[in-house]
Amino acid sequence: MENNSLLRKEGAKLGIVVGILMIVLTIIPMYYYASSSSFWMVIIGPVITGFFLPLVLAILFTFRLRGTIGGYWSFKQAVIGVFSMLLVASFISSVSGFVFEKYIEPDMRERYMRNIANNSIEYMEKSGADAEQIDTQLEKIDEQIEKAGEVNIVNTLRGFAISTIVVFVIALIFGALFKKERPIFQTISEEPQE
């Protein structure tokens, strides 16, 4: 039981670090993506900086978190620690995203979507697409911009609620993947070897 409260506390501390790193990986590259003339950079770049790099960070910090309690933890302890870490990181990311899109750069999302549209048109023209296909693609992008909706607290809270569910599922997966039970014949007084 004592390890569970330690895991929550340490998970929250590491979650702050992960949350700050997620802010950096999301907001700073967005300026580049909103002005890049590379179709592939605009399409693939956000997947790398918004999904793969945070996933790698989460894995690295999961190992660090496991090390804080001696290198061994059960599935339950892993889920508690990882969920605490990722929930705090998700909260920080949601709040900072809201503040950024509402007050700092309210037109950034539209600039980014317009840049996708411009790069898509250029790419389709180079690929030999006809005007009808290009118009269809532009209509889809315009619909996506409209669906993105206004940045408000209700949408942010809804997004955070959904991300909480996703974070819990990720914590379950990480708990299953990264659990490490203490060997049966190792006594508690022995130091773990790694």
Rank of each mutant, 00 (worst) to 15 (best):
L177Q: 11
F75T: 01
M124E: 07
E194V: 11
L138M: 15
L21Y: 02
V17M: 13
V167A: 15
S5A: 08
K180G: 10
V95S: 03
N4E: 15
E110C: 05
Y72H: 07
A58N: 10
I141D: 08
V99T: 04
V99Q: 01
I188R: 07
R8V: 12
R8D: 03
S37K: 13
G159E: 09
A89I: 03
K9I: 12
L172A: 14
I59C: 08
I20E: 01
G45L: 12
G19K: 00
L60D: 04
E191T: 12
A58R: 06
F61E: 00
I141P: 02
K13S: 07
Q133W: 13
G45P: 03
A78C: 10
A171D: 00
V88K: 01
I116Y: 12
A34C: 05
I184A: 14
V79L: 10
Q133E: 15
A89Q: 00
I134G: 10
S120P: 13
A176G: 15
L14T: 13
P192C: 07
R8Y: 05
R114T: 11
Y31K: 08
Y33W: 02
A131T: 15
E194D: 09
M85D: 01
I48T: 02
N4W: 09
N152W: 06
S120V: 05
E191M: 12
L87H: 05
F100S: 04
W40H: 14
S84Q: 08
T164C: 14
S37I: 12
I92P: 06
I162Y: 10
G50V: 03
F91R: 00
L138H: 07
F174L: 14
G159I: 01
I80K: 04
V95C: 02
G67L: 07
K126E: 13
F75A: 08
I104H: 11
W40A: 06
S189W: 03
F100I: 10
R182D: 01
L138N: 06
I92L: 00
W40F: 10
Q193P: 08
S163M: 05
V56D: 04
I16A: 09
L7W: 00
K126D: 09
G15R: 02
Y103V: 07
G159N: 07
I69F: 10
I162S: 14
G71F: 09
E101N: 09
R158L: 11
F160D: 11
F178C: 04
G19H: 11
V79P: 04
M108E: 02
E10C: 05
E190V: 10
V167Q: 01
E194C: 08
E191S: 12
